[in-house]
Design a binder for these strands. Structure first.
Lengths: 199, 199
DNA sequence: CGTTAAAGCAACTATTTGTTGCATTAGTTG
DNA sequence: CAACTAATGCAACAAATAGTTGCTTTAACG
């Protein structure tokens, strides 16, 4: 029986290259454009499909819902945007990261990013919020590893705690306090963090 | 002619009392329940109308879109929830405030609150975000005034900066890092703030 | 080149959105 | 209390979106 053949060899060979990769890129770009232009409400499967030049049914076959598509696009965006420099010092790395963060939050995608983050915590797509945070901490890991190696922060420091203390006020100032994030303010935060977690 | 009578006196008299007030309350309750249960996606006009026992057309006559309904409900909730203590020390006041904040953020409405904040920044309701923050700082002012009078923080300290540094990590840990906010973590933040801004 | 994953295409149902005309209820004023 | 009418209830719309499905076509990969 053909059923037996199917069970005997792994028939499911993936084909992520070529056209599929191109479609993925077009979808991500379309999602980010729509988010920047009209926020989450503009990010319907219909609009994404039109903008990306992709069939709507293709989107449904890939994603359980639009939140999945949105979070995928944002993770990819974060990967591109997070140009994590190696400045030679922890202070320089942290400063570069926070300036980068401030630029994104001040940009057209800023409020959309936060809306997505909040929606994810609200149960829009269970587990996706954790997935985003994990990917972000993974990108940050080398920065902290270098800092520990240089002896700039203590070896048993909690990296998540440090980054929360540093980035939290940045988010807060933009999101809750409705204030622009100035360079001098970022430097103040950096100074505080470096002083506090010095071994 | 009766037409002339109509033009001579302002015919548009509002009727905010009685039934209207009751409908408003039922709508707000329904929105908060749906937000807590299923997040933003669950908060359709259809669901709100069913839950509140109100006609859908009534919702459309009141709100331009669901964001307005959500924002109204959240603002009303925040008005009820805000409780500011006078514990006798700045450390105690700050701790009480942050615990209060953490409780709200950890609760079922936590992410909905942040979503609304993000929506306000995204232009959903121009000016509302700034007004909300101003009222919040106004409520916090006595706490800082007492702290200055007691000599617990320096007289020229920036109150907005202090509160941003304190509350920012709380928001961040819940919103971005997808972590629960523990009591010991809050105390750590309080310690840092008190030590940093001591005169 | 042959196999077949993956995308294109089209038709379909269900839900949500947003609007409108008319009937009914009840807040407000004299 | 009674008259006026704002506000809601009710019902029938049209349009967009959400999902799903069967079949065809394209092209990735061995």
């Amino acid at each position: 029986m053909s059923d037996k053949d199917i069970t005997e060899r792994p028939v499911r060979q993936k084909r992520p290259g070529g056209r599929t990769a191109d479609v993925t890129r077009r979808i991500n770009d379309a999602v980010l454009e729509l988010l920047a232009e009209g926020g989450i409400d503009a990010c319907t499967f219909q609009n994404v499909a039109n903008r990306a030049g992709v069939e709507r049914s293709t989107l449904y076959r890939r994603c359980p819902d639009r939140w999945q598509a949105i979070i995928d696009a944002i993770i990819e965006f974060a990967r591109r945007e997070a140009a994590f420099h190696d400045t030679g010092t922890f202070r320089g790395d942290l400063s570069a990261n926070l300036h980068n963060l401030a630029n994104v939050l001040n940009g057209p995608l800023g409020s959309a990013l936060i809306t997505v983050a909040a929606a994810l915590q609200g149960g829009a797509a269970p587990g996706q919020g954790e997935r985003f945070w994990a990917s972000r901490m993974k990108l940050l890991a080398p920065t902290f590893e270098r800092a520990v190696a240089r002896g700039e922060i203590s070896a048993d420091a909690d990296w998540e705690e440090i980054f929360s203390m540093a980035a939290g006020p940045i988010y807060f100032r933009r999101l809750i306090a409705s204030r622009p994030i100035g360079d001098e303010w970022i430097e103040k935060v950096v100074d505080e963090i470096c002083a506090r977690y010095r071994p």
